[in-house]
């Protein structure tokens, strides 16, 4: 049985301008110990999806329908108290805005120990500190910086501290929402490697969110490509990366230079993302799609099963 199974999840926000369809009909599953990456451009609903998995949407956010089965139980049916116990103990999160994710008035060691102490009432303060020390070793921060406050850390160190915090309770799943966007390229690379090795070491599943498809394809076993709140292509890393099917995936792949060489031309994706309040009929990508046909305007796309592990949400192919 999969660790996490998400079925037909739709999420939206109430706003003054109307209801925003931020995530629509998303389904996927994740095996224990595996990693799954979501890519898509800004505003396509990646963070919304991650927050919904922790049930931490802002007050105006609603999960309209769908199921989120974690270890076989629907997270949407849990009470607030049950959910509180699952958070961090079972599912931890590394936030997009990691730079401000640490409380400025508390010591870093205390903030990490707090997670341990909250979820394990048997754990003593000394034990917790001992574990924090071990975590610092894992993520490569010198032990004598444990008692520092967040503002004394560099961006990279803060990110490491947050990773340490995420690992603290040995969760089954970590949701990493663009964990490295705020950092420079070299540190980015180091941190990604660290996350990867720690993931393998602790056999933790990861949902990795990024707008950079090359990072995701380096890092994850499976890839989900999102566009305007919808999943448009989903499959094994190798398949999506080497034989992309959806025109959007193709465009994304050609937008980024690869590390291995000038394989793709750098070329911005033309057009604007569609309005999430008044959705156009038919395929959402069709305005920007180079291969859009007449039917794309009226008919919504269907899932195309390419292999048992690879599917695409498009009607214009074949």
């Amino acid at each position: 049985m999969a660790l996490l199974e998400v079925e037909n999840l739709s999420i939206g926000y109430h706003s003054q301008k109307g209801y925003i369809h931020a995530v629509e009909d998303v389904s996927f599953s994740l095996e224990a110990g595996k990693s799954l990456g979501f890519v898509g451009e800004s505003g396509c609903g990646k963070t919304t999806l991650g927050m919904a998995l922790m049930r931490l949407l802002p007050p105006n956010g609603v999960i309209r329908e769908g199921r989120m089965l974690f270890e076989g139980n629907d997270l949407l049916k849990k009470s607030d108290e049950e959910m509180r116990e699952i958070r961090w103990k079972k599912v931890a999160m590394i936030f997009q805005a990691a730079m401000n994710a640490l409380n400025p008035v508390h010591r870093i060691e205390d903030q990490i120990a707090e997670a341990l102490l909250t979820h394990d009432p048997m754990c003593s303060k000394e034990e917790a500190m001992k574990q924090v020390e071990d975590l610092f070793v894992f993520v490569g921060i010198p032990k004598d910086r444990m008692r520092d406050y967040p503002h004394q850390y560099s961006g990279g160190m803060k990110q490491r501290a947050i990773i340490a915090m995420a690992l603290a309770c040995r969760p089954a799943l970590i949701i990493a929402d663009e964990p490295t966007t705020a950092l420079d390229v070299i540190v980015q690379d180091q941190i990604l490697k660290e996350i990867k090795s720690l993931q393998e070491l602790f056999k933790i599943s990861i949902i990795f969110i990024s707008h950079d498809i090359s990072v995701v394809s380096d890092f994850c076993d499976d890839i989900g490509v999102m566009y305007a709140g919808q999943l448009v292509e989903y499959g094994d890393r190798q398949e999506v990366f080497t034989s992309p099917v959806h025109p959007y995936t193709k465009a994304l792949l050609s937008s980024y230079p690869t590390v291995t060489g000038e394989k793709y031309k750098l070329e911005p994706i033309p057009g604007e993302t569609p309005n999430l309040i008044n959705q156009p009929s038919g395929c959402r990508f069709r305005h920007r799609c180079p291969s859009a046909g007449v039917s794309c305007k009226t008919e919504s796309p269907v899932w195309l099963k390419l292999t048992p592990t690879h599917r695409a949400f498009c009607s214009s192919i074949r």
């Binding site: 931490l56 958070r87 994710a101 915090m165």
Partner: peptide, 10 residues
């Protein structure tokens, strides 16, 4: 953001 972290920490 750190309040969100605190919430996520359960």
């Amino acid at each position: 953001d750190y309040i969100l972290t605190a919430r996520a920490k359960g």
